[in-house]
Nucleic acid binder design. Structure first.
Lengths: 234, 234
DNA sequence: CCAAAAGTGTTGGCTCTACACCCATGA
DNA sequence: TCATGGGTGTAGAGCCAACACTTTTGG
């Protein structure tokens, strides 16, 4: 999001002195795989010109803050989530992207495996909600571009890294993994070929437990190194 | 580079009021293929705490400026070059990266096919020079990280795009193209396989002229679309 | 005619894709 | 016993890597 401080400014001089340099913000596109969909977290802006519009959570960066720490702290404030995978995406600097003032925004992609633990949103926003990436409402500012950029990055990284580990619970079945891939990449995958390739990458470890349910039990797996690895997945 | 405004500040209050927010800068790692090496353009800082150290050209972004326009304008001012391919790399925001003040720097990679046309460097710097990427001097600030990042990006993009077009003259031989790839990727390439793959990508057009020299003449080629295309090259 | 760089094809191995049936369980 | 989702193997095609000799020119 881009700031709406909400404070009125009365004169151009005020604006000029306050705006001597562009400001720096971070905005985070937080993804989760929920309800058989890739979803992202939206907040409804409560203040400023864009009040009532939906956007991604974010805020200005303060003096002395690292960018990723600002993004992480803001995400904790907006969603209550603490363990989020964060990756810098791109910096959007068009001076007109926020009609009020020149804000340069560093966009981050966030991934969480625990979307249900999101708590009441910060007072800064009217509300927050998860929304399927196929059904996004009109977003404020240049946030539609950010959404595109984040989605492309996530799709690309599914193909050559084990980034899916940040979207899945610690133990999961092959069916879950395959559904994640098929959904995000929007294409069907051959179950046998998918299995073979993923196993060949050596990044999964089979657990001794199984998931029991209405039907035949399914073997559970975990990601073996729990950190990002670059390797051909597809 | 990160700014050294050179102006002295006398009191913490001055610093605080001036530094109410982080500043935004752009820095550009400009590459060229010159003298059988991949080289990048360095400037010697003339002012500020880092005076005497080498760095990449850059400057603060002004209100109302787009990031890439700021990078382009600064490159024109520092090198005289106007037609440079620019691509945003990463934003470095560690508050301690510039010991003086909190500057968030958006790093760009620049590519030029005409490194010889670089003109006298701007008054802002003591001097400027091309330097092989294997023999970089100690660089100011976090510019060594920027250099790594840029080099990795260039290497990656050689493998899946036609980005080499921005490093080569309009007409070139296969030997030149292969030398560029082999040098930047630091590995030998099989001439026949390389030829076949590049031609199969359909991104080269053979020209009717040949380059004549001391030995057997070599066919000249040009990049057919003169814009970036994503396609498997290697 | 010699040195130097340009140009050219084939084969074997491997990888990838396409494809269909049986299994284990709970209800 | 049935419905549901879980689990498995093979064959043919296409792709990729490895490999060495001939051609053209200027000196």
């Amino acid at each position: 999001m881009t700031r709406g401080a909400g404070r009125l400014r009365t004169a151009a001089t005020t604006r000029l002195s306050r705006d001597a340099r562009p400001r720096v913000a971070v905005d985070t596109i937080l993804f989760a795989f929920r309800d058989h969909q890739l979803q992202c977290y939206l907040v409804e802006l409560a203040r400023g010109e864009a009040a009532g519009q939906w956007a991604f959570p974010g805020r200005l960066v303060r003096i002395g803050e690292k960018l990723d720490e600002a993004a992480r702290a803001d995400l904790a404030a907006s969603t209550g989530l603490r363990d989020v995978y964060l990756e810098q995406l791109f910096t959007f600097g068009d001076p007109t992207r926020d009609p009020r003032t020149h804000v340069v925004s560093v966009a981050y992609m966030g991934l969480t495996a625990a979307p249900e633990t999101v708590s009441a949103c910060s007072a800064k926003y009217a509300q927050g909600r998860w929304c399927g990436v196929e059904r996004l409402p009109r977003l404020a500012y240049d946030h539609p571009q950010m959404a595109d950029y984040a989605l492309n990055r996530l799709r690309a990284k599914l193909e050559y890294t084990n980034i899916a580990l940040y979207l899945l619970p610690p133990a999961f079945t092959f069916a879950q993994l395959e559904e994640l891939y098929a959904t995000v990449l929007e294409r069907e995958l051959d179950r046998r070929n998918f299995r073979r390739r993923i196993l060949a990458s050596g990044l999964l470890r089979r657990l001794s437990q199984e998931r029991r349910g209405a039907h035949r039990p399914a073997a559970l797996y975990e990601f073996a190194p729990r950190s990002l690895r670059t390797i051909e997945m597809l």
